[in-house]
């Protein structure tokens, strides 16, 4: 799996950080998403999928086959 984030869409809600803290963080200054791991290990897939699903700005994109 490969993950990309759309910083311009991100609204800074931080739900991804709560769900998958090993994959996502937020910038201190403006709360925008920081992608910690663009190609996470398999044990992070579920959290990454849930994060993409609940992201209130639809700013997380998963490329499952990559």
């Amino acid at each position: 799996m490969r993950i990309t984030v759309d910083e311009e869409k991100c609204c800074g809600a931080g739900q991804c950080v709560v769900i998958a803290p090993e994959v996502f963080d937020q910038r201190d200054e403006d709360g925008i998403v920081v992608l910690l791991d663009a190609a996470p290990a398999a044990d992070q897939y579920e959290g990454a999928r849930e994060s993409a699903g609940v992201c209130p700005a639809a700013a997380i994109h998963l490329h499952e086959d990559a």
Binding site: G14, Q26, D28, D30, G31
Partner: peptide, 10 residues
């Protein structure tokens, strides 16, 4: 409430 402090508010 966060005013220009999204991460800290969370």
């Amino acid at each position: 409430l966060g005013w220009n402090m999204p991460k800290q508010a969370r």
